[in-house]
Design a protein around this nucleic acid. Structure first.
Lengths: 217, 217, 217, 217
DNA sequence: GATGAATGAGGATTCATTCAT
DNA sequence: TATGAATGAATCCTCATTCAT
């Protein structure tokens, strides 16, 4: 790991160059996916957007699907790195409204800067069925939501938790779409606030507090 | 020449045949849209599914867009005819929870029988931007939601009402996706219940009643 | 021819009806050929222009080619009937300039009223090779020109006469195109005059007169 | 990095290959246009004739029109390069008969070697109307003819010159068709001679010479 | 006869993917 | 590695022609 210095420089440079190419291609893909949707995006268009030849694209990705998968993974990691502290024990100890602020705001911010994220999750657009390339992303995020739900409502059955997490995630995705569609500025802010309101209203009753007024469930 | 009976049969039959063909094509299109998504669906695939030659398809529709539009319109009308009584004055006079039962259940039932409906609304998959062919459908439904919202919360500003209607519709669409993804049976029923819960929790605080039970906002 | 009256009425009517249909179709074809050219014209377009179903068209003509052929033949006959007296012995006895007036003017007039004629002769547009459907028309007219040439210059060898007739006809067709392209009015008239001048200049030297003014050959 | 030799070969080769492909496609197009006429020619047929896939054709030309345009331009340039000296001051100073020899012969020779030229000018076959893709070619040549006419008959009004140039060009095109239709050998030669005769006879009277015998105009 | 629905091969064009350079 | 030319299957759509009514 430390020793063999003589042989590595070139590979490293190559790897570095390769990494740069990959990043370049993924960014281009992100832009084109956003502009045209995943299905309607052609690999040639991605290559063109990346100012690279189609051959080069295929040197790094076997096909369009692989690009979507890699892009999704990277975004997920990036999100985790940037805002992963959202799910720290301290945050999870916060009361629900505060937790939502701390967790949802950065999530939305991240998605505003990376609108592909939602594009990838809408994925192959077939409602109810999610294509392989977008599945991992989806499953991953859903798992996080489940975890949080489980934290705030530990008494739920696995099925209930899954269902509630699914609904929460669905609300979030739907609201996120509205947020991204709103023009930046007060309108978008209001939409964000509305989304948080919706989530709060949906989730509050689940939180087991000593004094619950409405046993709505 | 004598009675005006002799002339009608043929045109009528023709029209009937044409109507049947159109229906057949639209049903085929519905199936293929559901299976592959709107964008990825080819007109040839629709023709094949309808056991018809491509030329025949083009005798009735100038292009894929037109199929989507016609399909959307018909579904909308069908829905209105079947469950249009949902928005009767009597129903709008019901308390929110009952109204949701009366309105949402048939809507969901309709969508379970016509899953294209959601596929069409997800439309061209680019989040935030809705293609022409799906726009009308979307706008139409959104208008209905706005109306209902306005009915239950007449004091809202136009902007607020629009935002809330948008969020309500988004929640509905998201939940509907979950419902359609759930296998028929108790799981689907539970998902439907969950969706109604979500909508109820989101909308209850808007209802201006003297005595509000849950001061969640 | 005289007796059998009882059976004919119906067939006759039928034939009459058929003739009307055929005329209607040919007129429609003429219009469409003129507007789009022979090759680019579809049989469906002809049927539509004739306000008739494609099936009906094919009841009278086996294919597009047959339409062109029949149209050409009819035009030729019409032309002969209307202006066939052009080639009477008296006219052929006229001096060349007068003959040209008497022959060319009606020809051009006829073509101005029936611009398909030229469209059909340009035919399948492959220069030098003339498709079957337009060949007969061409050959027929060329034969007439040869006859006239032979009349005015009886001393020519068959080959010379054929060549000169070909060139004469080519000049006429070329000039006719210019005439049809010119807007009706003085410009068209001038073009007609120019065409006659060209023909006269080309043909004068062939006329064997004792005193030839221009020894250009 | 040291000499600028290392970088050029590839681009150059690429360009050379591209040029070769374009040339190959244009030659193939020329052959097919000649054989079937412009309208009836399909891009697939051109690709097949060029032993190339349809995709390759579309890498170089956006559509059939572009092929015709490029082909026309190249032929025009080629013609100008090969026989452009035709319109030198010296030639224009020649008496009409000699000028025709010097100008028409090479023109015809060029067209015999490139019969597409005429096919392109006959163009979209609708008499009187010339499609965009063939218009430039036509206009260009017509302008040349006008220039020459203007040189030999400077006293003409613009309208007269235009009309005479049009007629001259029409005669030339018509005669050229006959030439191309004639089998190579004495028959073709005779046809060429006949065409020159026709042009000479048509144009001679225009030439303002001190002693004109027949003021036919 | 007349209709117009139906066919299916064919045309223009695109695109994921491969390959020689 | 990088290029971009090349491929050919697949798309959308048209059209000559046929056929049931």
């Amino acid at each position: 790991m430390s020793g063999d210095v003589s042989e590595e420089p070139k590979p490293r440079r190559r790897q570095a160059r390769g990494e740069r190419r990959i990043a370049q291609l993924l960014q281009a893909a992100a832009r084109v996916f956003c502009a045209s949707g995943y299905t309607a995006t052609s690999t040639n268009a991605i290559a063109r957007e990346a100012s690279v030849s189609p051959g080069t694209l295929y040197q790094y990705f076997p096909n369009k699907e692989a690009i979507a998968i890699e892009l999704g993974e990277r975004l997920l990691n990036e999100m985790r790195e940037a805002h992963g502290q959202a799910f720290t024990p301290e945050n999870l100890a916060l009361p629900l409204p505060e937790m939502l602020d701390v967790v949802v705001d950065p999530l939305i911010a991240f998605n505003c800067e990376n609108p592909v994220f939602l594009a990838l999750m809408h994925g192959s657009e077939v409602p109810g069925r999610i294509a392989e390339e977008h599945d991992a992303l989806h499953a991953n995020l859903l798992a996080s939501v489940q975890e949080v739900i489980g934290h705030y409502a530990p008494g739920l059955s696995a099925a209930d938790r899954a269902r509630i997490a699914g609904m929460t995630f669905a609300i979030f995705k739907g609201g996120l779409g509205l947020v991204l569609a709103a023009p930046e500025g007060p309108e978008r802010d209001a939409t964000v606030a509305e989304l948080k309101t919706a989530l709060l209203r949906y989730l509050s009753p689940l939180v087991e507090t000593p004094v619950t007024t409405s046993p709505s469930r």
